[in-house]
Amino acid sequence: MFPHQLLLLPLLLATTPLTLASPSPLHKRSVTCVKVGATATASWTNSAGETCSYTGVVGSNYGENSAGGDYSCNGRCGTGCTGVAIGNVYTQDCWSHDICSYFNNASGGASDPNCGAAFEAAEDDFLLGYLDGCSQTNPTNPVVKPTASPVCS
């Protein structure tokens, strides 16, 4: 183990259930890494029960949304390129949550009516993505606002 991994171990042990008697929902989920610079499709269910999707580039920099959120490293499990995170982990669920949040001005984590389920789906990615090998170097992209919008139906 590297020294920085040893520092993460107590955090992971404190936040990851280790008992088999009552498995956590995290045990039923999986972490899917996505590559910075690759095209990926985000998907989520909005408050109207519609399935929404948006295709874009992982690691893109949309800057701030109209609510002031930091979307400088889309797909990174954590805020922007520099917010609290366990490594610079990029996953499918974090990508979906970031894109949902950007377009819906989400707030409140799991309680957000449009992006709460996407937030919950990304929780295990945030906690376990580093151990699953999803950490990458953050890009340094200029701000480019998206020209398309999600499609919901």
Rank of each mutant, 00 (worst) to 15 (best):
M1I: 14
M1L: 07
F2I: 04
Q5Y: 04
L6E: 12
L6R: 10
L7F: 07
L8T: 01
P10C: 09
L11M: 11
A14M: 05
P17T: 11
P17S: 14
P17F: 14
P17I: 12
L18I: 15
L18V: 13
L20R: 05
A21D: 02
S22L: 09
P23T: 09
P23Q: 09
S24G: 04
P25E: 09
H27W: 09
S30F: 06
S30R: 15
V31R: 05
C33N: 07
V34F: 01
V36S: 07
T41S: 01
S43Y: 06
T45E: 13
S47H: 14
A48I: 10
A48W: 12
Y54P: 02
T55C: 04
V57S: 06
G59Y: 11
G59F: 14
S60D: 05
G63R: 00
E64Q: 07
S66I: 15
A67G: 08
A67D: 08
A67H: 13
Y71C: 15
Y71K: 09
C73A: 12
N74S: 11
G75K: 06
T79N: 13
G80F: 11
G80D: 13
C81A: 11
C81T: 06
T82N: 15
V84L: 14
G87W: 03
N88M: 00
N88E: 02
C94I: 10
W95L: 13
H97L: 15
I99M: 13
I99T: 15
I99L: 12
Y102H: 12
N105C: 08
N105R: 10
A106L: 12
S107A: 14
G108Q: 14
G108H: 10
G109V: 15
C115T: 07
C115D: 01
A117S: 03
A118Y: 10
A121I: 11
A121F: 05
D124E: 05
L127S: 04
L127V: 11
L127D: 03
Y130L: 01
G133V: 08
G133P: 02
C134F: 09
C134P: 09
N138S: 04
V144Y: 03
K145M: 04
S149R: 13
C152G: 11
S153C: 01
